[in-house]
Computed example of a mutant assay.
Amino acid sequence: MFSKSNLLATLAAAFVMFLLGWAIWGFALEDFFESHTISDVMKDEPNPILILVSNLIGAFILSSIYRKWARGQHGIKEGPEFGIAVGAFTGLSMGLMWYATSNWMNFTGHLAEVIIEIMYYALVGIVISVIYNITRKADNS
């Protein structure tokens, strides 16, 4: 669980999650989501330290699950497949749950969130698989 591969994948994925999260939700699509928000629940100033800690925890969990899921196969398809599955779970499954139970965003906002989360986690999955692949090759040399 605390292997070199897992810890390096965690750090790389957390870095990507933090930067992509800021770039997507905090910058590029901020106005889009604002226009599709029904009830604004955002803090005026989000806590970047807690966001980073959250990304580290999430990246560690994703990297740990990926390690078992991939079963030593860290090729070009495993990372995006894993990330797409995670993104579909968080974006589609949980997004529909949020839409059914809350007045957070309208349907268009939730639909966009599905697409964004699938792409976001596909990229995170690629980062994790690449790190596992690199460290596996380094361990075998």
Rank of each mutant, 00 (worst) to 15 (best):
L62Y: 05
I61F: 12
I24W: 06
A70I: 05
S54I: 02
A12V: 15
Q73L: 13
G58H: 06
E30R: 14
S102Q: 09
Y132R: 00
S93G: 12
E30V: 15
I51G: 08
I128R: 03
L29S: 03
V124K: 01
I51A: 14
I57G: 07
I38W: 09
G21H: 01
R136S: 15
L123C: 12
M42V: 06
T108E: 15
L11K: 02
P80V: 01
G58P: 04
K137M: 09
V16N: 00
Y132D: 00
L62M: 13
A70T: 07
A23G: 10
D44I: 11
E34M: 10
G91F: 15
T37C: 10
T108G: 12
W98H: 08
Y132T: 02
V41G: 05
S54C: 04
A14L: 09
R71H: 14
V114T: 09
P80H: 05
G87M: 03
E30D: 14
T135I: 09
S63W: 06
G83P: 04
A122W: 11
N47G: 10
D40L: 12
I65K: 00
S39D: 08
G26N: 11
N47M: 02
L29C: 01
A12H: 02
P48L: 13
S3E: 07
A100L: 13
I128G: 00
T10H: 12
K68S: 14
A28M: 13
L123E: 07
T10I: 13
T108S: 14
F107N: 06
V16H: 10
L56P: 01
G87E: 00
L56R: 00
I51T: 12
A88N: 05
R136F: 15
I61G: 10
R71A: 15
E45R: 04
A9H: 02
G21I: 02
P80S: 04
N106T: 07
D139K: 15
L52C: 04
P46D: 06
R136L: 13
M17C: 09
E78W: 08
V86K: 03
T37E: 05
A9P: 03
F27G: 01
S102A: 12
P80I: 02
T108V: 13
K4H: 10
V16E: 02
I65A: 12
W104N: 04
R67F: 09
H74E: 07
E113D: 13
P80N: 02
S102H: 04
L11N: 00
S129Q: 09
N140L: 11
L96V: 10
M1E: 11
M42T: 14
W104G: 05
E113Q: 12
G72A: 06
S102P: 04
W98E: 14
E78C: 07
I61E: 08
I65Y: 06
H36G: 02
W69G: 04
G26Q: 07
V16F: 13
S64V: 03
V41Q: 01
D31P: 14
S35R: 06
I51L: 08
Y120A: 03
L20Y: 05
G91S: 10
F60N: 01
F2E: 04
L7K: 00
S39M: 11
I76K: 11
E34K: 13
S129E: 15
W104M: 08
D139I: 03
N103C: 02
L20A: 13
V16P: 01
S63H: 08
